[in-house]
């Protein structure tokens, strides 16, 4: 290579340029390595938080299920059990030597007890799984529930519901339970007079719940033990794979929005 014609530059300027470019390249590689490690660390921390949250939700779900079983057991024992015991006692007495009047009285009492037992069993069964939900679907069941609440004159419920839902039975049950939980919270704690329940199917499936109650500090309520409702709602929403958001401030009511990103999601085991 011969001597080139052109700019007259001292060699050290060119070497300085070379060194500068080299240092730049080293800096880029070093930055990349440090930043990549930091990102991985953040990702791990996030995964740990997520795992802890999942564990907490699962624990809560199990506790809620146990509580429900205890409640059903108590209902069966305290009401059904005692009524059937009384019925057996009356039937045993009927087999004895009684006056006609006494026998008729016992027959009436036995019939009353049997009717009460049937009513109680029906109530427990409806609590476990509402028949309207099974036979008519989510929206008619919500409409019926809302009408019952309206009839008590404690709450005005406005519903905006589509004609049909394309959800699986599991999804419908989960949404119904979430709504029940929300309404229970409103009745017990909010002091509200109006509730709005809106369901939308497009562009994505969405449920919006609003009340005009006294609101609450959402982050403070999460510190309360399970049974206050929010954890139930969170765990059911999470099991659905839904995105959800509470908006609540002291004095301005509460709103809850839930959206199903993919409403054709396969049903999760209950």
């Amino acid at each position: 290579m011969g001597q080139a014609e052109g700019l007259d530059l001292p060699i050290f300027i060119i070497l300085g340029g070379v060194l500068g470019m080299l240092l730049l390249a080293v800096a880029v590689i070093a930055f990349f390595l440090v930043y990549q490690k930091r990102l991985f660390r953040q990702q791990e921390e996030l995964q740990q938080l997520e795992a802890a949250y999942q564990k907490e939700l699962l624990q809560h779900t199990i506790e809620a299920q146990e509580k429900e079983r205890q409640r059903i057991a108590a209902d069966l024992h305290d009401s059904i059990g005692s009524m059937l015991s009384a019925t057996r006692m009356y039937i045993h007495q009927l087999n004895g030597d009684l006056s006609t009047e006494h026998r008729e009285h016992l027959k009436r009492e036995t019939n009353t007890l049997i009717d009460s037992t049937i009513t109680q069993i029906r109530t427990i069964s409806h609590d476990l799984f509402p028949p309207q939900l099974e036979h008519l679907g989510l929206f008619p069941a919500i409409q019926t529930f809302a009408q019952r609440l309206q009839a008590t004159n404690t709450l005005a419920v406005e519903c905006q519901l589509p004609e049909t839902s394309d959800l699986s039975p599991h999804q419908e049950l989960s949404l119904y339970r979430i709504l029940q939980e929300l309404l229970q919270n409103t009745l017990k704690h909010a002091g509200a007079t109006q509730v709005q329940i809106i369901f939308k199917k497009h562009p994505i499936f969405k449920m919006i719940y609003r009340d005009n109650g006294q609101g609450f500090n959402a982050s403070a309520v999460r510190q309360l033990p399970p049974g206050q409702g929010l954890k139930n709602i969170e765990s059911r929403s999470f099991a659905l794979g839904a995105l959800f958001e509470f908006k609540a401030e002291q004095g301005t009511g509460m709103s809850f929005e839930l959206s199903l990103p993919d409403k054709k999601q396969a049903p999760l085991p209950s």
Partner: peptide, 13 residues
């Protein structure tokens, strides 16, 4: 810098 300057910079052998 070496590649760019080879033909265009007047420097000694």
């Amino acid at each position: 810098i070496i590649f760019i300057s080879t033909n265009y910079v007047k420097i000694s052998n």
